[in-house]
Design a protein around this nucleic acid. Structure first.
Length: 426
RNA sequence: GGAGGCGUCGCCUAGUCCGGUCUAUGGCGCCGCACUGCUAAUGCGGUUUGGGCUUUACCGUCCAUCGAGGGUUCAAAUCCCUCCGCCUCCGCCA
């Protein structure tokens, strides 16, 4: 949610943000007038209620006829109070509904435009020239089969499309990547967390995933629970309804969980392999900090993501995502895309968003400092989304014989192993 | 799944049976002031959160807030219902 005071003082800024996102601008004025109605109905209720309380005290002290006379008056007033209360409730609900529907204010520094209008901030590393090396690179599905690391066929048999098994070295590779990510995160002060993957509606809604993104969320109707698409959800909601001492900030958590995505509306996209799947594991960084520190922390999250990919010796680029392609919670977002040789393209492997005070307001997470009590800022960033990193590792580090060289930094997490070799088919 | 107990403004706690200055008690912690070579101790005052009005802030004031939501009543922390959470026991189970 955005700050209503800011909305009242500078509605044009909010309209501009909506426009830049390509979202409904009328929502802003609908919210403004709903807020007006909310305050008016609240004032009326408060006045009636004050009168009722005052009379109530008189009733308590009165006796006999005097009391009977008072009761006649208070009875009438009670009906008015009840009506005013209902009106206030409706106005409040409507205002909050609209307030929740409004996306976060765009950071003015974010590029304006749609999905294609991102700005490339930097390119790190150089994609290998396989032609010069004299062989055609295999894609990760083929490599995964050769190495006995990925089984997409049986994944589909058992769990349907976009499902897979990580087998043998593939399974170990996941564990190694997760351990390496956790080691890096804890070294710079993150608290490792293993989070619930199944959450209540308040957590899902509070993080902003039940808006436009709702169609990609698995919902268990019998239990009124959601499967999270990222541990950002349980990590953000971890401090729901709390007031944190500003001196404790920043609070940094590295969450590990399975992630579930329906991938609705992506039929035909990335149907081969494990780039787009319904279930995967991920280590996510999540930070609670002051609004003043949020922008600097966003840069730090990006740097930690780069550190990780650098250690894996992968070529990648960093993009500044354009306004129209931001999630509802994000004011600004940087994605890192790793080079995928067989596609001749950079593909998203991490994403870090500054959600400013947006999620904190929805989840009622505040901080107490010298200024008093006010919302804090939250930020998130991927450290490792396992399948996509496996894709990049296999394809970028493959050799002509189908073996894959493991980057130095990963070897200690694989018992010192330096190469994955093809195995006989099973 | 079954039976029972519990949920009070940071923490602990009084109040709930029997509705009415509860405008929520006391302690701890914390903040301010006083006293004091320093510290400690002591004394006094303050200390939930949100919303409205006062054009912002300060100050002041009103309303809401006793796990959440509804109901009964002139009036609900207190009575009734539903839900959520925690604890104990039984059953089942990785």
């Amino acid at each position: 949610m955005i700050d209503l005071r800011l909305l009242r003082e500078d509605p044009e800024r909010v309209r501009a943000s909506q426009r830049s996102r390509g979202e409904d601008v009328d929502l802003v004025d609908a919210l403004l007038s709903a807020d007006e109605r909310r305050r008016a109905s609240g004032t009326r209720f408060d006045e009636l209620r004050a009168e009722q309380k005052q009379l109530g005290r008189q009733v308590a002290a009165a006796k006999g006829e005097e009391k009977a006379a008072l009761l006649a008056r208070t009875k009438e007033l009670a009906a008015e109070v009840k009506a005013a209360d209902a009106a206030q409730g409706e106005a409040k609900e409507e205002a909050e509904r609209l307030q929740r529907a409004l996306a976060n204010l765009i950071d003015p520094a974010a590029p304006v435009g749609g999905e294609e209008d991102f700005v490339t901030l930097e390119e790190i590393g150089t994609p290998r020239d396989f032609a010069a090396e004299g062989f055609e690179p295999r894609d990760h599905v083929e490599l995964g089969q050769l190495l006995g690391a990925i089984d997409t066929e049986r994944g589909a048999k058992v769990a349907g499309a976009r499902s897979y098994y990580l087998t043998g070295p593939g399974a170990l590779l996941e564990l190694a990547l997760v351990n390496m990510a956790m080691a890096q995160a804890t070294a710079v002060g993150f608290t490792p967390m293993i989070t619930p993957a199944l959450v209540r509606p308040a957590a899902m809604d509070g993080t902003g995933f039940l808006g436009q993104a709702a169609e990609n969320v698995y919902y268990l109707a019998d239990d009124d629970r959601y499967l999270v698409g990222t541990s950002e959800v349980p990590l953000a909601a971890y401090h729901m309804d709390e007031i944190l001492d500003a001196e404790r900030l920043p609070l940094r958590y590295a969450g590990f969980s399975s992630c579930f995505r329906r991938e609705a509306g992506t039929y035909g996209k990335d149907t081969r392999g494990i780039i787009r799947v319904h279930q995967f594991e991920k280590v996510e960084m999540f930070v609670f900090t002051t609004p003043e520190d949020a922008e600097a922390e966003h840069r730090r999250l990006l740097q930690w993501e780069k550190d990780f990919l650098n250690a894996l010796e992968l070529p990648y680029r960093v993009i500044d995502v354009a306004s129209g392609d931001l999630g509802a919670s994000a004011a600004r977002k940087f994605d890192i895309e790793a080079w995928v040789p067989t596609q001749g393209k950079y593909r998203e492997v991490t994403s870090t968003s500054n959600t400013t005070e947006y999620q904190a307001r929805r989840l009622s997470i505040r901080m107490r400092d010298g200024e008093g009590v006010r919302p804090l800022a939250t930020l998130n960033g991927t450290l490792v989304a396992v399948p996509r990193v496996i894709v990049a590792l296999l394809e970028n580090h493959q050799r002509a014989d189908g073996s894959v060289v493991l980057p130095e930094a990963l070897r200690p997490f694989l018992g010192g192993r330096s190469v994955l070799e093809p195995v006989a088919a099973r």
